[in-house]
Computed example of a mutant assay.
Amino acid sequence: MTTHVWDYLAEYATERDDILDAVQQVFASGRLVLGDSVRGFETEFAAYHDLPRCTGVDNGTNAVKLALEACGIGPGDEVITVSNTAAPTVVAIDGTGATPVFVDVRAEDHLMDTSLVEAAVTPRTKAILPVHLYGQCVDMEPLLRIAHTHGLRIVEDCAQAHGARRDGRLAGTMGDAAAFSFYPTKVLGAYGDGGAVLTADEDIDRAMRRLRYYGMEDVYYVERTPGHNSRLDEVQAEILRRKLTRLDTYIADRRSIAERYAEGLADLCGPGRLELPAVSDGNEHVYYVYVVRHPRRDEVIRRLRERYDIVLNISYPWPVHTMRGFAHLGVERGSLPVTEELAGKIFSLPMYPSLRKAQQDKVIDALRDVLQTLD
């Protein structure tokens, strides 16, 4: 039986009655768009983060885009971010008309190298967009100081960091606004698509609510442009409400799997060999993905697939600045050396809460066998 890097069917089998009850509740409610389920989820997701305001939107990409627009970011502006991220982060910046400006990442944890950010600030810089990648947080203190000094906004990309903490603070509570994705693979995932923006700022929240609804507050009357049709679906919102009550359990299960991987693979690690995820000081990792490194990554992945029917993923094989779709940015290869080196070595082991111990053992044993034949 094929082992995939992610699968939801075992989780669905366990939670099926609750998920279907959520669907039935919405269908019987008489309100299918921006009803009680969206309002309830917004309130509960904000409360989980001890913040006053949340706006549900249709996906994580638009969460980033609309958060930037709500912060006043648009054509002619620059937004500092990283290239070692899922492309939607940069698609969203590009979609506002602003220009993404990349800084490199740290080799040890793949996160934004905050020591490089201030040098990237120009008179056109209006925001910093740190990506809390793979399940742990960027070091936010330096970014907060830089933002204060230069009058910049900070929009956190929390698509991969639901429930992650840094120095006790939850991802999404440290900047001006925070964008979340609820794509099915996420730590808190819907049964379709969805997103949200958290903020403590009343003006940002008001702008978000207009932006997601054509620029309207009252029906048929546009208050501002641009406006979008970016509303969180009622069914997905109700499912997310149910799953939010289990978020801490999902995180605990992910951490347990990460511990088993670390224990089962530790003796195969070292320079020029396998490298496991590093947790930065002050961080509480939630392991959205379990990203490892090996200099012969492609051969490892091929052998695992051919010999053991284990199908893995790379997050991400192409840094954004190397993609043809972003050639207009004019960022040269070699300008982000750590990002580019990591892209040739990283790959993800299976990671989801319902991954059974027998499946975990299969992955550990198979990877041990493949790596020992390569040494």
Rank of each mutant, 00 (worst) to 15 (best):
A47N: 10
V279I: 14
A200M: 12
P319M: 00
V138I: 10
L32G: 07
T322Q: 02
T122R: 12
R224H: 11
A200T: 15
V300I: 10
A266H: 10
A190W: 00
V138F: 08
H285S: 05
S230I: 04
H49V: 05
L133D: 01
D104L: 02
P75I: 05
A179V: 05
L355I: 07
E263K: 09
D365C: 09
D157H: 12
R124N: 14
I239R: 14
H328L: 07
D309K: 13
R303M: 14
S230L: 09
S115L: 12
T81R: 03
H328S: 08
S181T: 15
R241G: 04
H294K: 09
D309Y: 11
Y261K: 02
H148Q: 15
R293D: 09
L274R: 00
T373I: 04
Y287T: 03
Y316L: 12
T173S: 15
V64Y: 01
M1S: 15
R305P: 01
Y287Q: 06
D104A: 04
G330L: 04
L170S: 05
S335D: 05
G168S: 13
Y183E: 14
R246N: 10
T125K: 03
G282Q: 10
R165K: 13
K357A: 09
H132I: 08
A262P: 00
T125F: 01
R333S: 09
V90M: 05
F102A: 03
G163E: 08
A327I: 07
L244E: 06
G264C: 08
L198Q: 02
G76E: 11
E15H: 11
V311F: 15
G334Q: 08
R293I: 07
D18P: 01
E284G: 12
R231P: 00
V291M: 11
V138S: 06
L371R: 00
K357L: 06
A92G: 06
V300W: 06
L374G: 00
H294R: 08
T114K: 03
V105F: 04
V26H: 03
L276V: 04
A159I: 01
A159E: 02
T125M: 02
R260V: 04
Y220L: 12
G163K: 07
E341I: 03
E118S: 12
D21I: 05
L265D: 01
V338R: 01
T89I: 13
R169T: 09
R39P: 03
H321W: 07
W6K: 02
S256E: 09
E340I: 01
G40M: 13
E238H: 12
L9T: 15
V235P: 00
M351T: 03
I251H: 00
P353L: 02
R31V: 13
V91N: 10
G325R: 10
Y183D: 14
M1A: 14
A190L: 03
I301P: 09
T3Y: 07
V26C: 03
L129W: 05
D375N: 04
I93V: 15
K186H: 15
R209T: 07
E306M: 10
R296E: 14
V64F: 02
Q236N: 15
E263I: 06
T55A: 11
T61S: 11
L116F: 02
